[in-house]
Design a protein around this nucleic acid. Sequence first.
DNA 1: ATTTCCGTGGAAATATAATTCCGCTAATAT
DNA 2: ATATTAGCGGAATTATATTTCCACGGAAAT
Lengths: 233, 233
Amino acid sequence: MDRRSYRMTRRARTQDDTRQRIIHATMQLHDEQGVAATSFVDVAKRAGIGAATVYRHFPTVDSLVMACGAHVWKEMDPPVPARAAAMFEGIDKREDRLRRLVEELDSFYRRSSLRLARASADRHLVRQLDEFMGAVEQGVEALVREAVKDQALPNPVFQLLIALTDFPVWTSMQRIGGDERERQGLLAGLLGIGGDERERQGLLAGLLGWVVSDEPKQSRGSLQPVIGQAAQR
Amino acid sequence: MDRRSYRMTRRARTQDDTRQRIIHATMQLHDEQGVAATSFVDVAKRAGIGAATVYRHFPTVDSLVMACGAHVWKEMDPPVPARAAAMFEGIDKREDRLRRLVEELDSFYRRSSLRLARASADRHLVRQLDEFMGAVEQGVEALVREAVKDQALPNPVFQLLIALTDFPVWTSMQRIGGDERERQGLLAGLLGIGGDERERQGLLAGLLGWVVSDEPKQSRGSLQPVIGQAAQR
DNA sequence: ATTTCCGTGGAAATATAATTCCGCTAATAT
DNA sequence: ATATTAGCGGAATTATATTTCCACGGAAAT
């Protein structure tokens, strides 16, 4: 009795269906109660199948989380370094590039806020989530870098931009309220502070230069020389 | 046979010693592996005593976490609303008050960063941690409010200040590196943007006003009218 | 001294989540 | 039709964390 060859047509379909149900149930639960808090039994119950079946499809937690991760990544469509340049296609003016950057980031964070929050919450418990967030951060950084690529910013200024554009900061800023336009304008304003042309440096760039250099440049004694100077002149 | 009266002098001391050992071991483990990840058995092992003894001293997880919380609170000595005013005693100039605020916050966040991070990480799992962080946030908010109390900031600006002074934002800014003085100067600069006197509003206040109002005030078309205008005039 | 009291901790009991076993059934090939 | 294969899932098993029990021994009172 040698092994028969199996093609599995109809069967394969129901099997694949089960797999999709599992993934769907898992994502649902991850959204509702968090990633780390979701057990295999929970998933099975939600999907309306046996726990053993979940194990058949996904022998390890890793494989399940990864399968979900792929789906989620696709759904949230985060910025990736490869497409960063294309996002600013034909946009030359500094302000317009900044505006574009903020638009892109705000809409990304907004449409992904729940899942980014869930991933952030458990990234120290689940390796995949940490990698996931790492990839997101890389994409955002690439976007920022592309937005200011012809400005030759000093590294600390660039790092500040990165810091001000990350997800935790966006989350904190949500408390301000307001609609999409207000939020974006506000963030764009904050970022716009950082570095204009080289000769008349942007406000923050100037400020940073003052702060980093050992001695105040002009108005010693004042705590915000550049800003103060810009505002009263 | 009626109950004897017990005074417990020597005994009370060793018992109290055990209690302190438990608390010490718990804080150690919370620092090392996080709050939620630390079990009663872990604590017992670290303290070199039996698990049952831990239960005798702290019947519930809550009681143990609270005892540790009290210690931690004392050690980190966070800003509290009651002492907020005293922190600015005799400091009148706007810039000096801001500088004081940043000094206070940065040094607080720096000396408490590990534990604030641990508390933040698990605040969604452990009620006490959430309350703890809530109290910290209240203290910080009181400090900020006190720092700008005579400026009559529009609420959105104030909210922005709160957002920019919270722990997640501070954490993100750590990536910039630099020493204490640089960091503080940078943050002070960022905050200083927000709201000067009413008549010549601070840059950010102006920006916000522009963003919030429906139509651009002066230089329509430009994305950062206030900053642009301030910088080039 | 001796009786009473109580903190201690090893061990057992309990709870819950993770994983595997195995018989059932439906799909497939001949 | 019938033998064969493979997905399925209830139930059993294992693993781990939580909680309780109780005998022991040293401290406190008389």
